[in-house]
Design a protein around this nucleic acid. Structure first.
Lengths: 210, 210
DNA sequence: CATTGTGAATCCGTTCACAGCG
DNA sequence: CGCTGTGAACGGATTCACAATG
């Protein structure tokens, strides 16, 4: 069990990885922390500190080898082998996520959607992700080897579905419902509450004008 | 111009407001900070500190009047009068947001979607939100009096659309693209990067098992 | 007298600044 | 010589603990 890495560091490293991919595509082979900081509007010391949690990656007097750091970061963040994702709830949001680039790339692949609505079951999302019955979840999860789940269901169904996913071996959960999901042992839970984003916006607007 | 309120405080107050509504529906008229803290897994002192930024709301020896605090909070966060929202990008995500409860309630109302795809223009989302041409944005914005915009467009269109919205009087922007939107003067911007949530999850999983 | 509002103490992340090194 | 890696300083947010008070 590694010492905990802060949420902020995690996000910056994700951003950094994305940026490194772009630099690599541009053909840059080497980059200093100052360059990286400038490109991604961060502080150079912060980049070095973030990386220092995991070892030494740079070359003094030179900077970082872009391709090298990119692949090491990818491995560190658990993104080098693709993960199977399942989405529970085939409403508008669930369908949007299932077809989204964010959930289907080198690192993630949506294997199936699950819903309780008999009219949806058996059909597919636009890109072809099958919609199956939630009753099939327990068997399907182990068959697919899913490790990540996304919950796009009504608030009152969240906890039950989360526990079903956890029992089926899912280790990470993204909860999109407007009801925070209490911690589940052995599972990393991240609540993504859209209402909070929107209200945060109006809050700042209200504060700024008084 | 009020002194800045931290992001964390903002989120907690949103959550608190939501909780107060629930308590009010349950018929509770009074609640201590300890009770609130317990219900929403927070620290009671934190709740009091958060509220202290804005004045004194409680009654010593008693606690807080639920309905009273609820309405004061609502006003403070700029949620007492409904705001008009426009969504740019009528892809899966844009459509999902347009029909979502989070964007259509007492405080927010989606007036229209905008897209560049001629085949979509003129049609409507499932709940009836009209899809219009982005070329109409400038006129439409002032006509509708929209103050909030959501960007669900490809990364390379983000900045242009953001500037168009800003020019049309939009004061708050939610950006769902996987490319952070640099600050725009006079506009509050919130980047909501789904990829970051997903990667954050795998990162924690990778860290926990080493 | 129970509970708020708040100064003081603590914790944690960020920034600075420089020693160490390729 | 230039840039990394890092100990030390800083600052903001959380938590503690208690005096103030309806």
């Amino acid at each position: 069990m590694k010492s905990a890495i802060s949420e902020a560091t995690t996000q910056r490293l994700s951003l950094l990885l994305r940026g490194l991919k772009a630099l690599e595509a541009e053909g840059l082979t080497t980059a200093s922390s100052a360059l990286l900081a400038e490109r991604f509007s961060l502080n150079s010391a912060q980049i070095r500190k973030d990386l220092a949690h995991f070892g030494e990656f740079g070359v003094r007097g030179v900077g970082y080898r872009v391709a090298d750091l990119r692949s090491k970061l990818q491995a560190l963040m658990g993104l080098s082998t693709p993960r199977t994702v399942v989405i529970v709830g085939a409403g508008n949001l669930g369908l949007a996520l299932a077809d989204s680039r964010n959930f289907n790339n080198e690192s993630f692949k949506v294997a199936a959607l699950f819903d309780v609505d008999g009219r949806k079951i058996g059909s597919r999302s636009k890109t072809g992700v099958p919609i199956r019955a939630v009753s099939e979840l327990p068997q399907a999860l182990s068959a697919m080897g899913a490790t990540i789940g996304a919950l796009a269901v009504p608030p009152d169904a969240v906890r039950e579905m989360a526990l079903t996913l956890a029992a089926g071996g899912v280790k990470g959960l993204l909860n999109f419902a407007a009801a925070p999901l209490a911690p589940i042992p052995g599972v990393v839970v991240k609540n993504v509450d859209m209402a909070l984003f929107l209200e945060g916006l109006t809050f700042q607007l209200a504060s700024a004008s008084s």
